[in-house]
Nucleic acid binder design. Structure first.
Lengths: 227, 227
DNA sequence: ATAGTTTAGTGTATTTAATACACAAACTAT
DNA sequence: ATAGTTTGTGTATTAAATACACTAAACTAT
């Protein structure tokens, strides 16, 4: 965003990449999409999907492109937030790269068509059982999970992980998975309904051999911070 | 932090800069250091001090260098936190720059020797009365002030703005300036002392024609988040 | 149809935290 | 000694968070 002294156009400078951390809930776990690297450094290791930022695209464009090219997910359909920018000198390669990390929340069914020709190998991993990772990606994921864990407490971003219509018990379960804690049903419902962010869809969920549940949706999908 | 397909070493890519937002309290106002630009684009406008990131330095190194070169402030003496990374395509210049913004909290007396040969013009501005600014710097400052305002509520970062020893009324005043609100003295003191982050220095401040105040210091300068 | 199983849905009492509020104490300047 | 100024302190009220247990509604197996 600025132009300054001390740098003429052809001095060498760092390259910029964007990595995306795509979170979803699946199998009652918080999971993240990783790709297997095809070349050195860290050939064969799992890593966050990422792309180099081109001259003619914004960081957000690049994040969107990474998402689309790697998973087929459209950016309008998910929650996307800039996490942090990493620019340490790398010990493992001569290349000098500044990486802007974005994290994405998507519900699992939007994510399922993960097949794309441009990608070699792609998998969902529980954030609690990660394989050995390339670069500093383990640390990046930890940072993202921490952010998610704290932000879910004072915002409505959980909606990124839920389907359009959901039961309050689905929502509670999502909180419990992310916070890694059991929550009290009555207090949870009182709190969530008290925020006035949800409205009943007017349908019941008739699945399972038990009393059917009301379905709810978020009144607005705009990100809201409370407290 | 990563190396990937689709980019060979000599494809053109964006440059990276670091801008620093140096905040201090002076004259009972929250102020920020700006420099006057000497060349286009935005020649003559006020802007955040910044530097290009070199191949052989980390982002933090670059932020530290920007601080030192522009203000003589050493990084160990201040609170420094990454704010956000801006990478929109610029409307005002052909250059393509990704800017990582850091914000710094310093107490005013550490900041006073602002003279440095490498800098043309440097000034402190109240964040409420900013001049016309270059690039998107007005928006960046707003974002930083928002962050400061919210973070001061759940962390001890206010210590960056205070001297080593201070009166509780100094601390309260700092909160009031940043939050732009009057606070209740008894409740403020109860809260702050209840956090157990402060200890009395054991000296009194004998200034002014009134009862002298106890001086306090932070037990630890490590950043602490509460709530 | 009845009993058994499972999840949905609901209210109150208790504890903790946030707020509102006023006066005496200690110093200086005159 | 008096006036002026800032420091330092406690309690009552309100709001928010927590702890906790039973009935309702569906399905299944008999």
């Amino acid at each position: 965003m600025r132009k300054n002294n001390t740098n003429s156009a052809n001095v060498e400078h760092p390259e910029v990449t964007v990595d995306v951390l795509i979170f979803t809930i699946s199998d009652n776990k918080l999971k993240i999409i990783l790709t297997k690297r095809g070349k050195d450094p860290f050939k064969g290791y799992w890593a966050l999907p990422g792309v180099f930022v081109n001259m003619n695209e914004s960081l957000l464009d690049a994040a969107s492109r990474a998402l689309k090219e790697k998973t087929g997910v459209e950016i309008e359909k998910v929650y996307l937030e800039q996490l942090y920018t990493f620019g340490e000198l790398s010990k493992n390669s001569k290349s000098r790269v500044v990486t802007v990390a974005y994290f994405v929340l998507s519900n699992n069914y939007k994510l399922t068509p993960i097949k794309s020709p441009s990608v070699r190998e792609l998998n969902l991993f529980s954030v609690n059982r990660l394989p050995e990772l390339a670069f500093n990606h383990k640390m990046i994921i930890k940072k993202a999970v921490d952010r998610l864990r704290s932000k879910i407490e004072y915002s409505n971003i959980v909606l990124g992980l839920l389907p359009e219509k959901f039961r309050l018990s689905d929502m509670q379960k999502t909180y419990e998975i992310i916070l890694n804690a059991k929550l009290d049903k009555r207090n949870f419902r009182k709190k969530m309904l008290g925020l006035k962010l949800l409205q009943p869809v007017g349908e019941k969920d008739l699945q399972g051999a038990h009393r059917p549940a009301m379905l709810y949706r978020f009144i607005s999908k705009k990100t809201i911070l409370f407290d």
